[in-house]
């Protein structure tokens, strides 16, 4: 019987050392309740993250488009950007808050997006751990550095 079947199916890579008594190993089905299955989490973090993506996205459309308009099109476009231009804008608290908000929202929005990408595509738990560690480190570093610069910016620096 098994010889017949293998003849009908044709040669298989790796040889046919499986038969009725010794079938190929069963791949454990996903979602089967095992000892390793994490307990159901009733935390709302995923909901908060989902909501944050929508809300920050809407705010970022205004912030980023406004930013691009000011930086690249109005008043002579990109050629006007220099130390003096940045110093002039950051003299006003309005632009400080604008840039700070944009920095935080864009970084968290991007980081959360990458987090879901890693969750979806990294297959091994270790890969996932390292990629997420790298992501969180980069995010925290960039946010802290940017915030520090905005708050401690000194236009008279030499």
């Amino acid at each position: 019987m098994s010889a017949d079947t293998s003849a009908a199916i044709g040669p298989v890579e790796g040889g046919s050392h499986y038969d009725v008594e010794n079938p190929a190993p069963y791949i454990e089905a996903p979602r089967k309740r095992t000892g390793k299955t994490p307990r159901a989490t009733r935390g709302n973090f995923e909901m908060a993250a989902w909501l944050f993506m929508r809300l920050s996205g809407v705010v970022l459309v205004v912030l980023v488009l406004g930013h691009l308009l000011i930086q690249l099109f109005l008043d002579g476009g990109v050629s006007k950007i220099g130390f003096a231009f940045v110093a002039g804008r950051w003299a006003s608290p309005f632009w400080q808050v604008w840039d700070l908000l944009m920095l935080w929202l864009a970084m968290l929005h991007g980081a959360n997006g990458l987090r879901t990408v890693i969750n979806d595509y990294a297959e091994r738990a270790n890969t996932r751990l390292w990629l997420k560690g790298l992501l969180y480190t980069a995010t925290v570093f960039t946010i802290l550095l940017g915030t520090l610069v905005i708050f401690t910016f000194d236009p008279n620096i030499r």
């Binding site: 293998s6 199916i9 044709g10 298989v12 499986y18 190929a24």
Partner: peptide
Amino acid sequence: RRFNPEVSDASVWE
């Protein structure tokens, strides 16, 4: 796409 665990752990197109 055929798969028979009593023959092989790989599946083949027939």
